[in-house]
Structures are given as C-alpha cells and as structure tokens.
Design a protein around this nucleic acid. Structure first.
Length: 768
DNA sequence: CAGTGAGCGAGCTTCCGCTTGACTT
C-alpha cells in the first residue's frame, strides 16, 4: 500500500517532484488529458442539453490502466494537475475515470516546483471547482461543434478532407488578407537625401557628420534641383540636442516569444523550437516550455541575482517582476527559464546549447539594470533652403542588460545607422563632402513567418501555447498555406550625387521582394477563407475567440450556465450551417478571364479536382473544353488572360535529335524535357520551358547522361554501386543498402556487395 | 516521378488543448 499518490500532468514534472517529497509519496503522470469527446461522431447529445459523450482514446488506455492500478494501491490521492481551465478538467476526468473516493481525494495546485511550494500545496487541499470544469466543457464542446459542423460543409461545397476551426480558420484569414494587401499595394518612390559633411577639426579620424535631409523629394527633377541648391549653399549647425534615455530589458520568455526569438536569432521553425525545448525540459535544464506567463519564481529571482552579482557586479542587478500582458493568459506555469540560472552553458547537441543559451541570456537580462544611452541630434541648416539635415547619434553610457541580451525585431533592413557624432558647436560652418539623392521605394506589408503569425495570434488571444506549433502545421498540411522561399526581383533605381560642385546621375540595380521561410496562401486557402467569410462571418471574426472567452470566464465564476451559453450559441450557429448547405452553390473560385483571341472561346480559371486549372471553352453543346494546370506561384486570383493562354503552349516539341523528338513540358516536379521516354529536368532559374531551344535541350540531356555515368561506381549487372547525395550506396532491384563505415568502396567486389545486402536485410528484419 | 478535368457512389475526411512516445525513413 502506498501512503500518498500524487498525479501530475507531465512525467518530467513527476520525476522532479518525487525527489522533493518523502518516501511516503509516489508521483505519477496522466500525460495530459486522459479522456475526450468521442472521436468518430459529434460526441455531443445536442438535444439532451449538450451532454458530452466522453471516451478514453486508444493511445490513453494504457495510461488509464496504470493510473487505476496505482490509485487502487494508494491510501490518499492528490490530484496536482495545472491550475487552469484544462487542468481542472483533467482533475475531474481523473476522478471519474479512476472512480476515486472523494473523501480521500484532494485537489492541490502549485505554481513553482520547489519544496516549499509543494509542501504548502499539500497543506491546502481543496475540492474540484465544477464551475471551472464547466467552462472547459463549454470550450471543448464549442470547438467540436464549430469544427465538426463546418468541416463537412466544406467537403460538400468546396473539396473533401478540408477543415475549419475557431483557431486555424483565423490563422488562414490573417495570411490571406495580408496577401491581398500585398497584391493591391502600389509601390511609390521618392528620393532620400543623405549628406556627408566635414568639420574643421584636428581629429582627422572623426571629422565627418552623416546626416539625412528631413524631407524626401517626390521626383527626380525635384531632387536634382535640390542638389543644385546644395552645391552653392552654406551649411551651418543650427541646433544640438543631447537627451539622455534608458532602455529596459524584455520580459523572460513565454512560448510565443521564445518561438519568435528562436526564429529571428537562430532560424528555428516553430516546431523545431518546441522539439528542442522539450528535450531541454526533459533533461531538467529548463522549466516548462508551454506557458503564457512571464512570472519568475522567488527562487529564480534570487538565483539570477546571485549570478548577476558574481558575473557582472552589483550595479548590473535589478530584480524585476513582469506582468503578463497577453490576452486570455492562464498563467499555470512560470516563464521559460533555466532551471538553474547558475548553469551558464550545458552539454547537449548544438541546437540544444544554442537554445539554452538564448533562454539563459533572456532570463538573466530580464533581471539586469536598464541601459543608459545618450541620444544626440544635430540639425544642419542651409542659407538658401528651409530644408534641414539631421544627424542622429547614440552613445551607450551604461550598457546594463545589453551586456547580455538585445531583443531582435522583425524589420529586416534597418537602415538607421547610429554612430558617434564628432564634437560640434552651434553655428559652426560645415562644408559638404558629398550629398546624394537615392530613389527609395515604399514596401508592401511583410508576409507572415511562422513566428510572426504566432505573435499575431497571441495578440488576438487566439490559440494556446500548446497549440501554436500544431496549428501552423495543420494549415500547411491542409494545403491552405505554403512555407517557402522566393528569389525576388531586380529593379533599377536612380541615384543622383553631388561631389566637388558637380551633379551626376547614375542608375543602380537593387533587389526587392526576396522572401525566406514566409507563409504564402494557396488557392484552396483563399477559396475556403472567402467561403467562411461569406457564410460564417461570426466564427472567423478576429474577435470571436475573445467574445466566447468572456463567456467562459463568466461560467468559471459561476455567473453563467454552460449549457445555456452553448444553447444560445448553437441555435444561431446551426442556422448558418443549414442555410449554407441548403442555399449555397459549390465554390470553385472561378474567374472568367476573357475570350480566346482566335477561336473566341471563353477562357476561365477555377479550382479543379486536382488543383487549380485554366480552361478554354465550355462543356456542353458537343464541345469538349481543354484544360491546363496553373503553374507554381500563379494564383487564381491574379492570373491574367495572356498567362492563362500561355499554359496551353506546353507540352511542346522543340525539335528532333538523333531521330527522336524532344518534348518540353511542366510536370509534378517542375519543367522537364522528355526524350527517348526518359525525363530530364530543366535547370531552375536558368531555363524557361516556353523559350528553351533545341540546342539547349540537347545540352541538358548530355549533361545529365554524363553525370549519371559518374554516378555509377561499380556495375555488376543486377547489383550496382552508386554515388548518391550521402556518398556511395548499393542498389539491387530498386532497393538501396548502406555500405558499412570504413569500407573501401573502390575495392568492393560483387561478393562483398552480396554479403552487405544479406547482412543489412537481417538487421532490418530483427529491428521489426 | 513528369496525370489527370465521365459519372456514380460507398466510405472516409474534421475541431482545440493537455501531454509524450511509437511509428517509419
């Protein structure tokens, strides 16, 4: 018989706590929720007051069994799931699933994993809070109703296997709307004036002031006229302002800010960040990584202070507690921090070390003094124009937390250079060294990255720390959005320079629109989004979650009945579902682009069975329309008649080579040449399938055949040794086999290969 | 590996939030 059994949500937490509690305590974990709505059906008896049908999912049957067994062997049971809506529901489900006796079962909570906090919790047990449980049930049932009633509407009216939900559909909406802002954005240019001014000083190292005119000039002529004015102007310092300022450290990490900074500083995807953090957590290196709180425990504050005192000294220390600002935060955990702040570096793989270092720096910096800066602004006036030049310099007087950590921003090309301005006096005369007017284009709003999308969702109070990464996976898995890089385009810009009294104009090339790991909406995402906005506007409204959260809070406070809340929501929601099923046609995103210039047939684009297609002609009256798939990066929404007609030029013959025809087309894997029934890919970014010539096609085929020859190291007929991406390997009947390390590949015989194949077949079987 | 766009219909798809392995490559 075990005296005391404590049940927590996470096994890593169970392990830690067991160490704190004496021998009378056994600590085990429920691995999160152990029961959920029935997976197959709706799982809700709507007519019977939304009575939920709960079941233990297949993968939780073993856990539930283990828990039951442990409970039966224990005298007292302490349920220590997290202190939030979900945690309270877990406690309630545990009591039901394990058939616990309420007289010997106690609900306890603690916010930090320290001996004090846990002992304190054990001294203050309470009952399960049914109001809080009911607010979770309302949340769960509402999400099921939304997801399981709207998704089938999409299957009928748009395409099978699609999905909609309170969180994912808003995430897609954000991305689609941002793309449309980019599509309609009209870039404008103006001329930015930068001047380099010399001062007379004995210091030849630091005698240049870099300044920008406070005004931009709309056109080239205006800029030219201004530079001509500059060539004869007298420049004089008209103002000097020196202002002290301070900078404060950012709060310690939550899930969302960790994901953002790991992306910006380390280039991690959201899922990668969570996987690495999970490893660190399981190894006991950091606290829990799914949290919305910026709170640090007293112990962490004290330890961080000790570290700062010994590493940097007293004046760098400033203990702070941050208020969590995000909407709907439940604060069941601490901020993400090092378990032991005095551990500066850890062992582990490179990513683990990098992420740990980031967390350590952010935590320590949050407990450090403000940085003190001095911002100097110098104004330079002209005697023949009211335009002022301004130089802004910044000097760090005391680095404070910046010694350890500076937060990154999403703005990519921050051109505001801050530097030390030489000492100057008011009314001092200056002469220009050079002045230039550079054409600058305005940029469209940026596309979302995974991390910036998480940031936006958090601001809107949509989704939870445990779901940010899965939500981003879902919208990519459904094909609504695609994460990819785009090369960008070149464009000419005009630069006018004034030097030694002469004005000259040159043209330069700048690249624009280059994208790295950005989220691009796909046609199906845009169609589904528009369909949802037309028919379920309330659900995809950015405020929907915030509004229902308010009601969940009321339920938690006992001021609203959860089934009543659901009834009110469902009666209007279900009407939307029925109305859409009854009255709305299929949505294909069809656009009629015009008529074929020769035949006059209608040309249109739409979402077809296998993806977006262009179509010439209409079906019916005996004619069969022709179809062609849209190319990559073409959208139904933006493709024009000419581009659509172009799609029908492929596949095309480029000519004959040694008696066989060469055909160029675009397939599943991009543009290709088909020759003698074999396929050769066109070079990305070099060859264009519409314009590639016979000569070039022959060249590509030759190149590929030659590199294929190099690929074959040994040829024993049915067994071959090939050189692949990861080095040499053996191929037999389309099966690949690894060559053991240390083998000299050039000495391999057919017998060696047979032995390797048999050996690896054995190990494959034994591992199964 | 390099397509498809006839039509019918059975059977399937799907949510959000808690938590980790168990899978395959």
């Amino acid at each position: 018989m075990i005296e005391n059994l404590v049940i927590v949500e996470s096994p890593a937490k169970a392990k830690t706590i067991e160490k704190f509690l004496g021998e009378d305590f056994r600590v085990i974990s429920s691995f999160g929720h152990i029961r959920d709505l029935a997976k197959k059906n709706l799982g809700i008896d709507i007519k019977n007051d939304f009575s939920p049908e709960y079941e233990i999912p297949k993968e939780k049957i073993k856990v539930a069994g283990d828990l039951r067994k442990a409970a039966a062997e224990s005298k007292n049971i302490w349920i220590a799931s997290d202190e939030d809506r979900e945690g309270e529901a877990i406690a309630w489900h545990l009591i039901n699933v394990l058939n616990l006796d309420l007289s010997t079962t106690r609900r306890i909570v603690f916010h930090e994993i320290t001996k004090d906090a846990i002992s304190n919790a054990v001294l203050n047990p309470r009952q399960v809070d049914m109001n809080l449980v009911n607010s979770q049930q309302a949340r769960r049932v509402l999400d099921r109703l939304v997801g399981y009633e709207i998704s089938p509407v999409l299957w009928k009216k748009v395409q099978p296997a699609l999905s909609a939900g309170r969180v994912q559909s808003v995430a897609v909406r954000l991305i689609v709307e941002r793309e449309r802002e980019i599509i309609t954005f009209k870039s404008e240019s103006s001329f930015r004036i930068n001047g380099m001014f010399k001062i007379d000083t004995s210091d030849s190292e630091n005698n240049i002031i870099r300044a920008e005119a406070s005004k931009r000039f709309p056109g080239e002529k205006d800029a030219l006229r201004f530079l001509e004015l500059c060539s004869t102007a007298e420049f004089r310092i008209t103002g000097i302002s020196i202002k002290p300022g301070t900078k404060s450290p950012a709060p310690p990490f939550t899930t969302s800010t960790l994901q953002q900074e790991a992306y910006r500083k380390l280039g991690f995807s959201v899922a990668q960040t969570m996987a690495v953090a999970q490893k660190l957590y399981e190894a006991g290196k950091i606290t829990y990584m799914r949290t919305d709180s910026t709170n640090l425990s007293k112990l962490a504050l004290a330890k961080s202070r000790e570290v700062i005192l010994s590493e940097f000294g007293e004046k760098y220390s400033r203990t702070r507690q941050f208020k969590t600002k995000s909407k709907g935060a439940q604060e069941a955990h601490e901020a993400i921090r090092p378990t032991y702040p005095d551990t500066l570096t850890i062992t582990g793989n490179q990513n683990e070390r990098k992420l740990y270092e980031l967390i350590w720096k952010r935590t320590i910096a949050s407990q450090m003094a403000d940085a003190e800066v001095e911002r100097t602004t110098i104004s330079i006036g002209m005697n023949n124009s009211p335009v002022l030049f301004q130089a802004i310099g910044e000097v760090i007087k005391f680095d404070g937390f910046l010694k350890v950590y500076a937060e990154s921003t999403d703005i990519e090309n921050n051109e505001d250079e801050k530097y030390i301005i030489p000492a100057v006096k008011k009314d001092m005369l200056l002469h220009y060294d050079s002045i230039s007017a550079t054409q600058k284009y305005t940029s469209p709003p940026p596309r979302y990255t995974e991390a910036s999308l998480v940031k936006k969702l958090e601001e809107l109070g949509i989704g939870r720390p445990s779901t940010y990464a899965p939500t981003i996976s879902t919208i990519q898995n459904r094909g609504y959005v695609l994460k990819e890089d785009r090369p960008g385009e070149k464009r000419p810009i005009t630069v006018i320079s004034l030097s030694k009294g002469k004005v000259s104009t040159t043209s330069r090339i700048e690249s624009t629109g280059k994208e790295k790991s950005k989220l691009f909406p796909q046609d199906i995402g845009m169609i589904v989004n528009d369909f949802l906005i037309e028919n379920f506007s309330e659900i995809v409204d950015y405020n929907f979650t915030a509004e229902v959260e308010e009601q969940f809070d009321k339920i938690a406070e006992g001021r609203l009945k959860w089934t009543g809340m659901l009834d009110k929501f469902y009666s209007s929601f279900h009407k939307m579902v029925e109305n859409t099923l009854e009255k709305k046609d299929r949505k294909t995103g069809i656009r009629i682009l015009g008529n074929h210039p020769e035949t006059g047939e209608q040309v249109s684009v739409k979402m077809g069975r296998y993806g977006p297609v262009a179509q010439i002609g209409e079906s019916g009256n005996g004619t069969k329309p022709r179809f062609a798939s849209l190319g990559k990066n073409q959208l139904l929404e933006t493709i024009n008649l000419q581009e659509a007609l172009n799609l029908f030029r492929l596949p095309r013959s480029v000519g004959m080579h040694e008696g066989d025809e060469m055909i160029v087309g675009v397939g599943k894997f991009g543009p290709y040449i088909k020759y003698k029934n074999k396929f050769y890919s066109l070079k990305k970014g070099i060859d264009d399938p519409y314009s590639v010539t016979l000569e070039r096609a022959i060249e590509i085929v030759k190149e590929k055949s030659e590199s294929d020859k190099k690929k074959v190291l040994k040829d024993f007929g049915d067994i071959r040794v090939l050189n692949g991406r990861f080095g040499p390997y053996i191929v037999k009947e389309k099966e690949n086999f690894r060559i053991p390390k240390g083998t000299e590949t050039d000495k391999l015989t057919k017998e060696d290969c047979i032995r390797i194949i048999e050996q690896s077949k054995k190990t494959r079987k034994s591992s199964k």
